[in-house]
Design a protein around this nucleic acid. Sequence first.
DNA 1: CTCGATATGTGATGTTATTACATTAGTCAA
DNA 2: TTGACTAATGTAATAACATCACATATCGAG
Lengths: 134, 134
Amino acid sequence: MTTAQELTKNQSLVFNTLSRADGPLSAYTILDQLRGDGFRAPLQVYRALEKLLDYGMVHRLESINAFVACAHPHHHGHSHGMIAFAICEKCGQVSEFSDDIITQRVRQWTTDNGFKQTKTTIEIRGVCANCGTA
Amino acid sequence: MTTAQELTKNQSLVFNTLSRADGPLSAYTILDQLRGDGFRAPLQVYRALEKLLDYGMVHRLESINAFVACAHPHHHGHSHGMIAFAICEKCGQVSEFSDDIITQRVRQWTTDNGFKQTKTTIEIRGVCANCGTA
DNA sequence: CTCGATATGTGATGTTATTACATTAGTCAA
DNA sequence: TTGACTAATGTAATAACATCACATATCGAG
Ligand SMILES: [Zn+2]
Ligand SMILES: [Zn+2]
Ligand SMILES: [Zn+2]
Ligand SMILES: [Zn+2]
């Protein structure tokens, strides 16, 4: 992961859009929200996301093809361990957490098996507390 | 997860294709391999995959939009815990494993947070032992 | 200023997945 | 047997997600 720098115009626009959102957004949703700011093509979004992912400011949720701003802004520019996401299928809310034991167990497996990990995805799909009691 | 039953013709064709493959396949790759058996449209593959996933005979790798036959065929029709996949980005090989401690820690978080999980994805991307030493 | 690196604009294309609707095949009760 | 129901299948069209190729612009180092 590269250290965060001053964001370019497009990167700022995309990051602000994700920060304001109350849940994950798809690249095309971001594009639509930025039409007014001159965005016209998917690549403008994907290029900005690529950098923001690299800086650790944004995460990609593989299981729903969507992106969220990192819930731990103080971590920008730091490596930020192995993160798990709990994704509510009713309201779309995402909770981000990390667990040292899980991190350790995954590392144990990769060490035992000579596997050099570059990125690990942990995504829990289900229904959050709010939606479950409704 | 539903209990496995006799597979239909299309389900068998898709499952056999995945079983013979030495790594994960995309739905469209499966389609291409089954053109000779009369497959003509993506939906024929997706519908078969839907059932096979339901029976637990096939897994979907979210991070690469691909499907693999379950590495533990004796588990067909059984709930099969929380599974992790290690996916080699060089050779495409996938290793499937499960870890009780990880399962337990995830359950701990969901319990503590009132989150009802329905499905959990754990995918480790990287380079396998074979490819790392090459 | 000039060069190289980074960022941007834009259209076309590639890849993955679903919708909608018609048809066929099996099951079972009357 | 027939009718009615359900599961499976066939097919075309479309939606959703992502990248390629190429042109242009911006900016700092030398
Ligand atoms: Zn984060
Ligand atoms: Zn919710
Ligand atoms: Zn399995
Ligand atoms: Zn490998």
